[in-house]
Design a protein around this nucleic acid. Structure first.
Lengths: 209, 209
DNA sequence: CGCCGCATTGGCCGATCGGCCAATTGCCGT
DNA sequence: ACGGCAATTGGCCGATCGGCCAATGCGGCG
């Protein structure tokens, strides 16, 4: 069932060599056609405006605005845009954010060519695809409860070595409340103390290096 | 000064699409020739045995044995092997380990094609090359003192939420000593408490997600 | 052969942490 | 409109932490 017109693709990744390789590989498939590339979020949105591709392949880590923010802006302007995240991160939080921001799929860069092509077709058809291995991790972590915005804020400060009293001052709340937030973090992240909580934050993708 | 024989390259990276792209880009240069590829450390060493290339382009993050260990094993067998690290990590610790293990150079995947080619030529000629941006970070962190093996071990346990007393038990030392190690970590990592120490560990590449 | 850094241990103490109890306000979704 | 969850705050207490003092071997570098 060869389609009459190939799926038109926009590649977004800050690594030029990867884009080149990807374009090469994908163009070998008659059903796919790379029509544009971009190396950051701003360029990605401009390229979408100009070319109106069928699917965008989008990386998470980019200089300037990151993949999630790029996705948010794109979908504000083009709510129907189909985007497949193609990244090296397997962090559950990255996956959740991407899907929440309207990504049609999420695969890691270690996928084989055939899987990638299949994922592109799925996303183009409007179906959601997530790598098997990635999906498992997401399922494993979400059991333990979602981290609220405030808690994430607190975790970011705990990471910087602030005490509960300092947390309170910085957030304009009492030390008690700060303590409560830290306590909630320990439970949700299944950590014995703030040090382990920070480690879990990095493991889950809540914190970035 | 076109050389009579092109530099023969071995690409090692677990992302097939990146290898394909890299091979494509590099083969466009008449002075370079990709003679083999490998997707993990074991395959990399076998490929070196078989092809005896001039330079290996090696990624850090790989399934099974990682880039550093691959480099160690390769250089035990072929001490004169020239290896250029090509990775996405800018963590100072990764850079230090790679150079200590005998890498001839270290560049990130965001380098432009021309810089990459230049780096390959440098490494082939036996000169050490490190990306400007990466070199700065390495210089910035090594002032604060090197972390000893024992301290790194302790940091790994602190990350898991162990108390000083537990550290002592696990390491077969007294709680006092464990405390001393943690104290040394706080000073060297410029951290106010163990939570910040863990964060610094991730930032520097001492700890991996 | 000294010097230096690492690993080891001790005591003491105030600051901080994490866990226990319970309570009020406000927002979002049903 | 009602229920649930997030955010907020309080008191109390034992456990833990981090910083201060000082001391002993051991191994590598000059």
């Amino acid at each position: 069932m060869a389609p009459s017109a190939p799926i038109r693709l926009l590649l977004v990744d800050d690594h030029a060599v990867l884009r080149a390789g990807l374009a090469n590989v994908l163009n070998c498939d008659a059903g796919l056609r790379v029509v544009a590339e971009a190396d950051d979020g701003t360029a990605a949105i401009e390229a979408w405006r100009e070319h109106h591709p069928d699917v965008m392949l989008l990386d998470l880590s980019m200089p300037g605005i990151d993949g999630i923010e790029t996705l948010n802006r794109l979908r504000r302007e083009f709510p129907a845009a189909r985007v497949l995240m193609l990244t090296s991160s397997e962090a559950p939080e990255d996956v959740r954010h991407a899907l929440a921001a309207g990504a049609g799929g999420y695969v890691t860069k270690s996928v084989r060519r055939a899987e990638l092509v299949a994922a592109i077709r799925e996303v183009h058809a409007g179906r959601e695809v997530v790598s098997q291995s990635v999906a498992e991790q997401v399922a494993a972590t979400q059991e333990s409860g979602a981290i609220s915005r405030r808690e994430l804020e607190v975790l970011g400060l705990v990471r910087q070595g602030f005490t509960n009293a300092e947390l309170g001052r910085l957030l304009g709340i009492s030390e008690r409340t700060a303590k409560a937030h830290v306590g909630a973090l320990l439970v949700k992240l299944q950590a014995a103390d703030r040090a382990e909580a920070v480690a879990r934050g990095f493991e889950r993708g809540l914190l970035k290096a």
